[in-house]
Nucleic acid binder design. Structure first.
Length: 813
RNA sequence: GCGGAGGUAGCGAAGUGGUCAAACGCGGCAGCCUCAAGAGCUGCUCUCUUAGUGAGUUCGCAGGUUCGAAUCCUGUCCUCCGCACCA
């Protein structure tokens, strides 16, 4: 029978939309906010990863809704950003038109998948009403010293004429120009002082109900380490040096300052200038990204001509510029202890610098000894264990006011400036007289001008009309900031905007505090150290502004697995292994696709696409549909009731825990075991179990059962424990075993339609009567059961004597 | 180098102390149906054995704990992923 899934699906999608089924308001019910990370729309449309992500979210949303919660399940588009701008330029379109088209396309596809979004809450970051919020928050950050301007080394592509985000540098090359090396440049940039929140972000990570892997990644990224800050005198000025090994301070034989250090040139003497400049030139093309090929990179450097004074030994120590010291960690300069640090050791070997052993236990001729040991050559600290010496030396330094115990983070302030058009304009005006002046709140939003000419770099810089603006302070003409904000700014607070997306304010704190924090956030694990840290930071900042009453944006987080192509490789156009969700829907149906996506594997594990699973899912749904066309509605037997209730229990549990694949197995099993005649109640409850996965077909069949209301808004079935009867399970096992035995004997003997005689011991007779009846029907055989002591039984070969407890004897004729 | 995940029958994938030769799906094989194919239905699918209910060998590899291990412990090999010269 040919079922028109397409018609059915369209019918219910229309119905949901018309009757505003998924529109939510504040209510007395307990709230539940489920959110999938909003997509970055592109003209190529939704990909299978999106479909997977959103399906997981939708199942969760539909399930919670049926449980009686007030479910907020919105969707939006993260549409500002560099990739869209580049794609638009390539397509010779205006980014605005390109984005609009992409969003329309995405929306259409999402509708076809039957997601239960409250579309009235759609958020688009390209909407000036939205990015006004970015600008307002920026101004608040500026007021509080969280946003600041600073000169910093950045990745620069000479061909694009623009700064690139770290993610846009691939192996030291520009992502758009594979042959172009990225350079380091010093530019005045806007930063967000996320490091102010490093401690809180770090500490609260443990409390989150998030995947542990992500939590560790975040903690590593924030990178808290305890150490000591020691003041070394250089040219009579103190320089702070961070170390985790103050116990080795007597072994310092030189210092290394980062080649990227902004104050490097202060230390370079006239005599050494040429040498240092030569060195800097040599490493200029080595961007931060390619430094990541760490092991291969040889330690290199040049003597600056300056010396530092070791505060404990008063030794004069030469300072080198080096390529292996990170400029923005610690103080960008390290005290080098070649005897006890591998990198310092390599550097010392190369430049013939002295290696002084201060911890015993290793062989410093062979290499650095980084382990624990007793101190030697360390004055009054000789003989102390190195671990203990860390404490003692730190105390000594503190007493002498030469330093203190301190904490360092790897987390760096967030560089948000982008020399690009398609982003939120930074609301700043540069005035010759007044300096850097923030735009007044009442003048927000600063809209992106529509008229721009794309050429080299940021087209805003050549838009004279837009740039020219009156200084809010003195009234004379100044210049607008032409940099725009990093796209991650947009996604840092969008979840708040969903709570009241159409107002002219930023977001409604009252509503945000009702709906938030997000109860269940769902998205890719690749965001662990970017978006998922940024939006925590924003939440904390907005809390400190007094707008939010919570400190963490998402209580629970779920990462969907990566879905690879059928060949096990990443889906990509060039490999030709991309499966388009629309094609799958076209060929089968949205419900089939949703079911298949959840059947491959546990939704959080990486897996590959399998066309057969999709076909199989479709087959199953067809079977379900056909069953509902043929079946009779009458009374439910106890066996089915028992099975149903057991399944309700299992499925509920599985869905709670995101074991969607297992839930589906149980649901399939239930439908497969439904008898031709059963009650409306059983059928309805079975449909409800399937509904979160396959909303359309269940809506259709629910309606066919004679229900007037939507299944989408029905209550999730409750388990009736009393109806779960272990007897039936036992019977099922008995049936299986008996069936196996009969089939086996049939096979061995080759008898096709035998008469079957089953002999059981008297005690077991009750256990077998029912199963034999069922098997009679199922196998279409004549099966007779006797107790083995029954005198009138038919038993030509005396099989009956072999019957044992729980082990019937069988004769086939 | 640091950190994380994982290795289960032909494949995908459940299972985390006994009820495990191990759910379920796919594939394969056989039967029914049909003029035939497909679909659908039924059964089998580690090896051997047998008119069934029996035996043997399995859950990356090697040891160990236990009356008992796919499941716990130790070591080891392999795969995938993230971070990476962070002092």
């Amino acid at each position: 029978m040919n079922i028109s899934f397409k018609k059915i699906e369209k019918k219910w999608q229309d119905k949901w939309e018309k009757s505003k089924t998924f529109v939510v308001k504040k209510s007395k019910k307990k709230k539940y906010y489920v959110l999938e990370m909003f997509p970055y729309p592109s003209a190529t449309g939704l990909h299978m990863g999106h479909a997977l992500n959103f399906t997981i979210g939708d199942i969760n949303a539909r399930f919670r809704r049926m449980l009686g919660l007030n479910v907020l399940h919105p969707m939006g588009f993260d549409a500002l950003g560099l990739p869209a701008e580049n794609a638009a330029i390539k397509a010779k379109e205006h980014p605005q038109d390109y984005t609009k088209k992409s969003i329309t396309y995405f929306t259409k596809q999402m509708r076809k998948l039957g997601f239960s979004y409250d579309w009235g809450r759609k958020v688009e970051t390209t909407d000036p009403k939205y990015y006004k919020g970015d600008q307002w928050i920026f101004l608040k950050m500026l007021e509080r010293g969280i946003a600041y301007r600073n000169k910093a080394p950045v990745n620069w592509c000479p061909k694009c004429n623009t700064v690139l985000a770290n993610e846009q540098v691939v192996n030291g090359k520009c992502w758009r120009h594979e042959d172009t090396g990225v350079e380091m440049k010093y530019l005045e940039q806007w930063f967000f002082k996320i490091t102010n929140y490093a401690e809180e972000l770090y500490n609260e990570t443990d409390k989150l109900d998030w995947p542990s892997r992500t939590k560790t990644m975040q903690k590593n990224w924030i990178g808290k380490s305890f150490g000591t800050e020691i003041l070394f005198k250089i040219n009579r000025k103190p320089w702070k040096i961070f170390t985790t090994r103050p116990d080795t301070i007597y072994g310092v034989t030189f210092m290394v300052i980062s080649a990227q250090h902004p104050r490097l040139m202060e230390l370079v003497t006239k005599k050494q200038q040429k040498e240092v400049e030569g060195f800097l030139k040599k490493i200029k093309l080595v961007s931060q990204k390619s430094i990541k090929e760490a092991e291969k990179l040889k330690k290199e450097g040049a003597f600056t001509g300056s010396y530092a004074i070791n505060p404990l030994t008063n030794e004069k120590i030469p300072i080198y510029a080096g390529n292996f010291v990170v400029a923005d960690y610690g103080s960008g300069m390290v005290m080098a202890v070649p005897a006890h640090d591998q990198r310092d050791f390599e550097f010392a070997k190369k430049y013939n610098l002295p290696i002084k052993e201060v911890i015993s236990g290793g062989n410093i001729k062979k290499g650095a000894f980084t382990g624990e040991g007793k101190l030697v050559n360390s004055g009054k600290f000789n003989g102390i264990n190195s671990k203990e010496a860390i404490e003692q030396i730190t105390n000594d330094i503190k007493k002498k006011k030469l330093g203190k115990k301190t904490v360092q983070y790897k987390l760096k302030d967030w560089l948000i400036s982008r020399q690009r058009y398609w982003g939120t304009p930074i609301p700043i005006i540069y005035c010759d007289k007044c300096g850097i002046i923030p735009v007044k709140e009442k003048d927000l939003p600063i809209k992106l001008p529509r008229n721009v000419k794309f050429g080299k770099g940021n087209p805003l810089t050549t838009n004279k009309e837009w740039i020219k603006v009156k200084c809010p302070k003195c009234g004379k003409f100044g210049k607008r900031e032409t940099d725009t904000m990093d796209t991650f700014v947009n996604s840092s607070w969008y979840f708040l905007r969903y709570c009241d997306p159409n107002n002219n304010k930023i977001f409604d704190p009252k509503k945000a505090n009702y709906w938030c924090p997000i109860d269940q956030y769902i998205g890719g694990k690749e965001h662990a150290c970017m978006h998922l840290i940024y939006f925590r930071f924003y939440t904390k900042f907005l809390r400190d502004l007094g707008l939010l009453k919570f400190s963490e944006p998402a209580k629970k987080l779920f990462h969907q697995g990566v879905l690879y192509g059928e060949d096990g490789r990443k889906m990509s156009k060039s490999l030709g292994n991309v499966i388009d969700p629309l094609d799958a829907i076209e060929k089968y149906s949205a419900d089939s696709l949703r079911l298949a996506l959840m059947s491959f594997a546990s939704p959080d594990s990486d897996t590959s696409w399998d066309a057969k699973v999709l076909a199989g899912s479709h087959k199953f749904l067809s079977k379900v549909y056909n069953y509902f066309n043929k079946n009779k509605i009458g009374k439910a037997d106890q066996r089915t009731e028992s099975k149903l209730n057991k399944t309700i229990k299992e499925v509920t549990n599985y869905i709670e825990n995101f074991n969607y694949n297992l839930a589906i197995i149980k649901i399939r099993d239930l439908f497969n075991s439904l008898p031709n005649e059963t009650s409306k109640d059983v059928l309805g409850k079975s449909l409800k179990l399937l509904h979160p996965f396959c909303p359309h077909i269940t809506e259709e069949l629910w309606n066919k059962l004679g229900n007037k209301k939507l299944i989408s808004l029905e209550k999730w079935p409750k388990v009736d424990e009393k109806k779960i009867d272990k007897k039936f399970e036992q019977q099922e096992q008995t049936i299986e075993k008996l069936k196996d035995d009969i089939n086996n004997i049939k096979k061995i003997t080759g008898k096709k339609n035998p008469k079957v005689y089953v002999y059981v011991i008297p005690k077991d007779i009750n256990l077998y009567q029912e199963p034999v009846k069922i098997l009679n029907k199922e196998l279409k055989l004549k099966i007779k059961v006797y107790t083995n002591n029954y005198k009138k039984k038919y038993d030509p070969t005396n099989k009956a004597s072999k019957a044992k407890p729980n082990r019937p004897s069988i004769y086939l004729e």
